[in-house]
Computed example of a mutant assay.
Amino acid sequence: MQSPPSSLSDGKLPVFVFPSSLIFYSDDQSTHKQVLTLYNPYEMALRFKVQCTAPKKYSVIDPEGVVKPRCCVDVVIRHVDICIKHEGVLDKFRIQVYEQGSRKMAGKKEVTSVLYPTRDSQVKSEDTFESLPTVPGGKMGEQLSIPIRPGQSQSTSPSLVIIMAAIACIAALMLPTVGDKNIKVPEYLVLSVNQKLIAAYVLGLVTMVLLRT
């Protein structure tokens, strides 16, 4: 059995989550439900917990659970309080992971979330994380202004290159990691943790491009 990564001891285990941000639009009901995918490329099972800076505004199905080795899980997030006073408020979700049987956090990843009236603007907010129960309850984020530039539009479709890059990064995250045992793929398909970190970073950039198209 593979030894746990040394980063488990310092709480810096790389956590792979897609996408890196959630964007909701008041005028588009299809965006009011989003999915976060948590990947586990390791040979050990990981327990996860989802927290949020504004849990009352969101409904999360199974905010806690376990990701089996080399598997992934989908976390469904719904914005349940769509209203004008929440537009322009930047919230954050924090995904914390733990080794099975341990209470010490092994790693974490933050994902931003914002509600826009349409498809513009940039915001900032303070971070005050709270636990996220299945039936949400908690504090609201602070209302911030939205700098909207008239005439700006985002109507182009994502290019094939961007879509292929996203698929390639996801595939890379699911490949075996150096040190894994019982590997049944060619050696050139076995990636190091650093290579997977690069893939996760690129995937985050590609996600931002896709969300803005």
Score class of each variant (00 low, 15 high):
Gln2Arg: 14
Ser3Lys: 12
Ser3Phe: 06
Pro5Ala: 03
Leu13Ser: 03
Leu13Phe: 07
Pro19Glu: 05
Ser21Pro: 00
Leu22Met: 07
Asp27Phe: 02
Asp28Pro: 01
Asp28Glu: 12
Thr31Trp: 00
Thr31Ser: 10
His32Ala: 12
Thr37Ile: 12
Arg47Thr: 10
Ala54Gln: 13
Ala54Glu: 15
Pro55Thr: 08
Lys57Cys: 09
Tyr58His: 07
Ser59His: 03
Glu64Ala: 12
Val66Arg: 06
Val67Phe: 05
Pro69Lys: 01
Arg70Met: 09
Val73Arg: 07
Val76Leu: 12
His79Asn: 09
Cys83Arg: 14
His86Gly: 14
Glu87Leu: 06
Phe93Gly: 08
Ile95Tyr: 03
Ile95Asn: 07
Gly101Ala: 05
Gly101Ser: 05
Gly101His: 03
Gly101Asn: 05
Ser102Phe: 04
Lys104Gly: 06
Met105Lys: 11
Gly107Ala: 13
Lys109His: 14
Lys109Ala: 15
Val111Trp: 01
Tyr116Phe: 00
Arg119Thr: 11
Gln122Asn: 04
Val123Leu: 07
Val123Cys: 13
Lys124Phe: 11
Lys124His: 07
Asp127Ser: 11
Leu132Ala: 08
Thr134Arg: 06
Val135Leu: 08
Pro136Ala: 08
Lys139Pro: 01
Lys139Tyr: 00
Gly141Pro: 04
Glu142Thr: 13
Ile146Lys: 11
Thr156Asp: 15
Ser159Arg: 05
Ser159Pro: 05
Leu160Glu: 11
Val161Met: 13
Ile162Asn: 10
Met164Ser: 15
Ile167Met: 13
Ala168Asp: 10
Ala172Phe: 01
Pro176Ser: 09
Pro176Arg: 09
Ile183Met: 02
Glu187Gln: 07
Tyr188Ala: 04
Asn194Arg: 03
Leu197His: 02
Val202Glu: 02
Thr207Gly: 15
Leu211Asp: 14
